[in-house]
């Protein structure tokens, strides 16, 4: 190796080790749902409501929607009526701006706000079965509808913060979300194909979990995977990340309840 090429090689290694993630976002027309990376069997499982276990949570959610709860003795249906009409398209625009709190809130937080403020009931914990069921039922009403995170000056700083989190290297493995899901999607991480990480089917039934789970549960999994300390459930960082991920998936169709391996 000549001195010149060695210097170039050293310089390249130095460059590779110090560069920040470039943040090359996936072009809109190249975006693909995690569904398209799944095996034929798993796709068939999701497509048929007689084999998709997520349907159980949707059915449970429907029962909860009509059940009176809390000191106020009201059911979701008492205010919102028929969810098939009133909740159509709602999940497609969450996380959404909450004027009272002056920050975006996700669907689970919105449901809990309704519980505490209108129903006068105790809030449900994250990953609580009833909260997952209600979220799945509400999100299910938007199945097949495109994600529509509208441009909004108020949510923009939160969206930008979410993007920054997505691009930032973190954890002992020093990896950013973008390094796998923007730059290396379609390649292999051990035996599995790396998807693009679009939140099109949450809450979803993950075969690994043997259960339905929220987007935040999935994000915590990824953070543990890169050996970072995951944010607690309901952390602002997660809501910002959810907002960015939904914006990143704008126009893609919701699949709730999706099935993933």
């Amino acid at each position: 190796m000549s001195a010149g090429s060695r210097a170039r090689a050293v310089a390249w290694i130095f460059f590779a080790a110090t560069q920040t993630v470039a943040g090359a976002e996936i072009p809109l027309e190249e975006r693909r749902s995690g569904y398209e990376f799944m095996s034929r069997d798993t796709r068939a499982m999701q497509d048929d409501d007689a084999t998709n276990p997520g349907v159980f949570w949707v059915l449970d959610g429907e029962a909860l929607w009509n059940r009176k709860a809390g000191a106020a003795g009201t059911a979701c249906a008492d205010c919102h009526g028929n969810a098939r009409v009133s909740m159509k398209g709602v999940a497609a625009r969450y996380p959404a701006w909450d004027a009272a709190r002056r920050r975006p809130v996700n669907l689970e937080q919105r449901i809990n706000m309704c519980r505490t403020e209108r129903q006068k009931a105790a809030p449900l914990e994250h990953e609580n079965r009833d909260l997952l069921a209600l979220t799945a039922y509400v999100a299910h009403q938007s199945r097949g509808m495109p994600i529509t995170i509208a441009p909004d000056k108020r949510t923009e700083p939160f969206l930008n913060a979410g993007r920054a989190t997505f691009m930032r290297r973190q954890g002992q493995l020093n990896l950013a979300c973008a390094q796998c899901h923007d730059e290396r999607w379609g390649k292999k991480l051990a035996g599995t194909t790396i998807p693009q990480g679009h939140p099109t089917g949450y809450p979803l039934y993950r075969l690994e979990w043997q259960s339905l789970g929220s987007l935040q549960r999935r994000l915590r999994n990824c953070m543990i995977g890169i050996r970072a300390e995951p944010y607690p459930y309901g952390a602002m960082e997660f809501v910002e990340l959810e907002l960015y991920l939904m914006w990143r998936a704008r126009g893609m169709k919701l699949e709730t309840p999706a099935v993933r391996p």
Binding site: M45, T51, P53, F56, L207, Q210, S211
Partner: peptide
């Protein structure tokens, strides 16, 4: 056997 068993 997995949760929510599916038999066909």
């Amino acid at each position: 056997i997995a949760a929510n068993p599916l038999l066909a």
